[in-house]
Simulated assay, not measured.
Amino acid sequence: MLNFGNITLDVFLKDYWQKKPLLIKNAFPNFVSPISAEELAGLSLEDEVESRIVIQKGNQDYELKSGPFDENFYGTLPEQNWTLLVQGMDRLIPDVGTLLEQFDFIPQWRLDDIMISYATTGGNVGPHFDHYDVFLLQAAGKRNWKLTSQDCELSNYIEGVDLRLMERFVVEDDYICETGDLLYVPPKWGHHGVSLTDDCMTWSIGYRTYKGLELWDSFGDYLAENNAFQTLYQDPNWQDSASGEITEGSWQQAKSLLQSALQDEDTLKRWFGRFATQLDQGAAQQLPEPLSEDEQSDIETLIDVLREAEGIVRDPVCRFAYLNEDRNVTLYINSAIWQDFDATPEFLQLLANQRRILQEDLTPHLDHAGNQKLLADLWQLQFFEILDAE
C-alpha cells in the first residue's frame, strides 16, 4: 500500500476522505512510469482509445480536441501549453493496472479508472472541479497544483469555452508535486494543475460518483426488470375532501407506498450489488471474447493447468464484488448476480477481493468441485488470465 507519510491510513479515511485535500510527499518512492509519453501518444491514435488534447491559447482561452488523432497532428502542436489525456489506462496497460492494488483501502467497486496525462511546460486543462474523488500521482516531471474550496458551483463557469472551467478561483492551497508525490482531491474542490516541465506525466486515479437521481432511476429500472413492486396504491379516507383537492392523506399514501419499496432490504441489496458492478458503455465494449467451443477444455485439464501456474489475474475490464450475509456470499460480476456453482464463501470473497491471486492463495481452493465449476465458467468467458510459472 502507498506510503501515507506523517499520517496513518485510519487518519486519512477519518479526516480527509471526501472531506479535504491531502498532499502526500513521496507516497511512491522511486516511482518509474511503465509507459512513456511517446507510447501514450501512440495509444491516442487508436480508434478504441478515448483521448483528448487541451491547448491553452490565452488566459481563459482553451481549445479541446478529441481523438483518435492522426500521427501528423502532433507536428502541428505548439511547443508549450498543451496536454494529452488518455482514459482507461488501467484497462489498456497491465502494468498501469497493478497500481490499483495500492489503493485497496477503498473498495474496488468504487474505482472508475486511471487516466494518464502528458503535458509540455505550461500545459493544463484549466481550473475546474469534479464531483468525484481523485488521487493525482505525479509520475514524471513537476506540476504546480492550486486548490480552492470556494465557488465550486455550476454557476461559476466561464461561458464560451469548450471545457467547464471555473471563472472565479480563489487559491487556498499551492503545491509543487514531483515524481512519486500524491495529491488527494475530494469532490467539489477546485483544482488547477500547470506543468512546470516538458516531461510532466500525471496519473489520475478516479472514483465513481453517484447522484441521488441516478440511484433512484436505477432502482426503478431494476424493479421494472424484475416485475417487482406491483403493490397497488390505496386511497386514504375521503371524508371531508373536496372533489378537486389533493389531500394530505392522498400524497401521504403515495409516500408510504414508495417507502415500502425502500424498506425491502433484500431487494435493495440485490439491486445495489448490480448497480455497483455495472460497466459503462466504453468498458462493456472492451470485454474479452469468450472462448469458442473448439478452444474450451474440460474442467480437469483447466484445474491441472492452474495447479502448475503462477496464479490468475482478473481481466481489468471486469468488476467483481460480493455481499456477505452470515456467510451467505452473493457474487456480482459486471452488473449480474453470478451463479456460484456452490463455490465456497471463502473462494467467492477471494475472487472479488484480489485482482491477482497467486498460486499459494489459489491452490487451497482448487479441490472443491463448486470452485472448479466457477473457475471453468469464468475461464470460458475469459474473465481471468492464467499466469504462467517461470
Rank of each mutant, 00 (worst) to 15 (best):
94 P>R: 12
322 Y>Q: 12
162 D>M: 00
173 D>E: 09
290 P>C: 04
363 T>Y: 09
104 D>S: 08
344 T>Q: 12
153 E>P: 00
204 S>R: 07
23 L>K: 14
12 F>I: 10
211 K>A: 14
152 C>S: 03
240 D>K: 13
154 L>W: 01
320 F>L: 11
317 V>F: 06
218 S>L: 06
99 L>I: 14
104 D>R: 15
111 L>P: 01
1 M>T: 13
98 T>G: 00
140 A>W: 04
350 L>D: 06
311 G>Q: 05
170 V>I: 08
301 T>I: 11
385 E>Q: 13
74 Y>N: 08
333 I>S: 01
121 T>I: 05
128 H>Q: 15
279 L>A: 03
138 Q>P: 03
1 M>A: 12
321 A>M: 08
204 S>D: 10
89 M>D: 07
368 H>M: 11
377 D>V: 01
368 H>E: 14
384 F>P: 05
227 N>F: 03
121 T>V: 07
226 N>H: 14
200 C>F: 11
13 L>H: 02
208 R>V: 04
207 Y>D: 05
27 A>N: 10
360 E>W: 02
235 D>L: 09
157 Y>C: 02
191 H>Y: 13
120 T>N: 09
387 L>P: 01
219 F>R: 01
140 A>C: 13
114 I>N: 02
315 D>K: 11
203 W>R: 06
22 L>D: 00
238 W>I: 15
44 S>K: 08
69 F>C: 05
302 L>S: 07
44 S>I: 09
92 L>V: 05
